[in-house]
Structures are given as C-alpha cells and as structure tokens.
Design a protein around this nucleic acid. Sequence first.
DNA 1: GACTAATTACTGGTCAGACCAATGCACCAC
DNA 2: GTGGTGCATTGGTCTGACCAGTAATTAGTC
Lengths: 259, 259
Amino acid sequence: MPEENQALSPGLRMPEQVATRLERLILDGVFRPGQLLPSERRLCDRLGVSRASLREGLRILRSKGIIDTRQGHGSTVATLLPVGNQSPLMHLFKDHPRTLFDLLEVRALLEGESARLAASRGTSADRVLITRRYREMADYAESAESIDVERLARLDHAFHLAVSQASHNPVLVHTLQSLTDLLLSSVFASVKHLYHLPAPRTMINQQHAQLHEAVVNGEAEQAEQVALEHLSSISQLLRDLEEEHERLERSSMRLEEWQ
Amino acid sequence: MPEENQALSPGLRMPEQVATRLERLILDGVFRPGQLLPSERRLCDRLGVSRASLREGLRILRSKGIIDTRQGHGSTVATLLPVGNQSPLMHLFKDHPRTLFDLLEVRALLEGESARLAASRGTSADRVLITRRYREMADYAESAESIDVERLARLDHAFHLAVSQASHNPVLVHTLQSLTDLLLSSVFASVKHLYHLPAPRTMINQQHAQLHEAVVNGEAEQAEQVALEHLSSISQLLRDLEEEHERLERSSMRLEEWQ
DNA sequence: GACTAATTACTGGTCAGACCAATGCACCAC
DNA sequence: GTGGTGCATTGGTCTGACCAGTAATTAGTC
C-alpha cells in the first residue's frame, strides 16, 4: 500500500497522473495562462514523483499545447485560446468596420456574465487578486501626470482578466480572451485614444471602481449591470470617435477638391 | 562534433529527434502497423540515446496515437494512423468533463442572445428561412420511423444556425459556431445518443417549436427564455447520461470483482 | 501424456543522482 | 549609465539501479 503520493488513479501511470493533476491545477486557476510553473525539481517535491516521471508528464502537456517550455527559463502555461482560428473574422473587420460593434456586443454579453459569475462564485483569493489588479490600475491612472497609455491599457486588461478568471469557467475566460485580443489587434489605436481624452477616462475609472466594488462584495446583479454599462459606454465612445474621424475625413476631402 | 548519433537536428532536442526518426522508420515500412517495436533498451543502443530521452520520444509518439505501449509487453505500431487534428481545448475536454458544462454555460448565454436578437432584428427573409429549416427538421423528426440520427443532428444544427444568423451579428454567429463545433467534436456520441431516447426527443422537439414560434413572432424575451431553457435541458440530459454511464461502469467493475 | 503451478527471463515503469547547457540577474569595472 | 562577467537557477541528458507486469518455460501433479 503506497504510503505517500495521494494517488487517485487505478490504472494510471505516474506521468499521466502528473499531467492530470497539473491540468486540474490550471483549470482551477492555481496556475494561470502565461504564468511560469514552479521548476521541475520543485514540482517533483510537491507531487512526490521522480524527475523522469515528472518530465514525461510535462511532455504530455506540451504535446497537448497546454504548456510551453524553454531551457534555462522554465515552463509557462500557454495562453491557450483558439476558439477557432481567428483569421476568418479578421477579414471581416477590414472590410466592414461595423463588425467592431458586433464584437463589442458579444463581448459585453460575456463580460457581463463573467462579472456576474465572479461576484457569485469568486473565492477570497480571487477577490484579493482582483483588488490588487484594480489598485495597480487605479493608482497608476490617478497618480501619474504623463501616463504611458500602453501600460495603462495592459493594467486595464489585467484587471478585466482577473475578474473573468474568478468566474471559474475556463471556456468563458478563453472565449473572452480571444475576442479581446481580436478587438485590441484591430482597434488598439482607437482604444489608446480613449485614454488620452479626459472625459472618457474619468468615466472609465468610475465604472472600474463600481465593477470592482460590486464583484468583491458579491453583488452579482450589480456587477453584471456595471459591466454591461461599461462596455456599452466604450462602444458609444468608439462610435463617437469614428464619427468624428469621418467628419475630419470629409472636411479633408472637401479640402482636396479645391486643390 | 558528435562522432555518433547521426544527428540531423539543428534546434531539436533528443526526444524530438527520436520521435522523428522512429516516425521515419515507420513511414519507410521498416516498422509496420501492428508490429512490435524493439525493446526500449535495444532502441537506446540503436539510436544512441539514453533510455530517459528514448522514453520521452516514445511518449511523443504515444500522444500522437502512433504507437501503443503495454507494460511487460512492449510498444506496437498503431494500426490506424492519427485521426483528426484536435484543438488544444479538446484535450482538456476528454480528461475533464467538467469543462463540457462550462462550455454549455457559455453557449447558452450566446444562444439566448442570438435568439433574442433574431426575434427583434430578424427580417422577413430571415423568418422565412428559419421557418423552412424548422419544417425540414420537424417533418423529418416526426415522420420517419427509423430516423438517421446523424441527419437529424445536421438539420438541428442548420435550424440553430439560421436563428443565429438572423441576429445579424457575424461575430456572434462565428463564436457560437466554433463553440458548437468544439462541443460536437468532443461529445457527438453523447449528443447522438440523446436523439435515440424518446423522452429527450419529444422535449427537444417541443422546445424547438417554441423557439421557432417566438422568433418568427418577434417575441424577443420569450425567444431568449426558450433558448436558455433549451440549452439548460440539454446540459441536464448530458449530465444524466454521464451519471448513468458512471453507474454502468461501477456495476461492471463490481462484476469484475466476482470473476 | 495432459494439465496446472512455479520459475525465470524478458518487457516497460520508476527512481535517484550526476553532469551539461542555456538563461537571466546581480554585481562590478569602466 | 553602460557593458561585461559570474554565478545561481532552469531545463536537457545520461547512467545505473530496482520495481512491476508479461509470457514462455519448466517443474510438479494427476
């Protein structure tokens, strides 16, 4: 009878067990996408297996595309998403900017649900992380005089990611993630522009504060509502931005006609 | 300069090399499907690598489904070569059924929204198409005595697709589509099974009828509600199916104890 | 002689410890 | 500051040993 190694496995070999247990930890959010796993030697201790078995377990995860390993560096949890290849959608964007708002519509739906679930299902550890991300973002947004917009965008993204991860629904997290990536890769310039204008920024800051409060206080309905309003505001801001852009274009066209 | 080990590998690690070389030998017909490979120790000699590396190489081939290994026996070349490529998320599904319900949760959200939008935004042309798809599905489901389950599943899928397309949100359609593909490719057997049981089938038929009616009559709230209930039912049915499956497994295990 | 049970020589599975190679960070000289 | 230099840490590989199933062989029994 094995005295160690809380084996849960009848027919499973060690490497399979290692892979399964690590997957479980990843799904539970203990190890998150992008995060660096503990070193192999440390994992051996924690899981109670030899390095050979552990390495075969990691090999399984690597084959599945779940982790990514670099010599001298370590193994990181892959930012696995592909809900599907994103290429087909990318074309749509270029030809039909309207699709941007369709994307925001879907994203609002998912963001609302994730906020609701985060408020109702989130653990205390989740709340701690969410608060930390929120503070990082809010402190930077308030304190700095000349903010680095790109950095603020990253902090913003990290905050929303923390909220979605608290939903404990990996599929939701990944879908949301891929949509956000798609959004940023296509209109990052516009989004960046939003942060530069004072009015939108204070509005966004307020909504973030409300969202944070609702989630950590477990107010599910409130959290969903705030998230929906947040995305709706962003959508409206981008719409205004686009309109203004068109107006500028028209005037420049008029200018060209006379030259 | 390595004197042995006819390395052909720039950046490749040993295990990858081992896997590649063995694949090559299999493709060249040196090792044929069904055949027993030489023992690990013998392969180590022949390939000039340690057993640890050799085993990691075999692990790669096993992950790809190219070989099959049994303790005390050996590794045999699999008879049927790799099936369909599976997305990274697929692996998570197989080992963690919990993720399946996470997927259904997200899908219900999107399906609900698409039904709502279809009812409120759908054009008359959309409604005609939806009705046609619905009739095709319903007629086949009711009339035929011995139904071809796979065909019914296709008609079902076509109906839902028509509804989602009436939402006039390509992003929503696309996201929903990829989630559905993911679902079907992982649990198509179970879904198929649902159609075979009489009770679930009548329930599904009823819900389809209600969904169709709500959408074509422009009753947005009702459509969303029905869609949510529909997905919720399916989720519950799959849950029951899984439970029953486990019960059967347990009883067969008990059976084995007495033999 | 035919059948069963123990033996034994394989097989893969796991472990421990050693060393090599790449990375990245801290420290130090300039 | 800037650019090296070292060193601690990480993954990559090897070795040799032992454990655990498998199956063929052998010994024992009827």
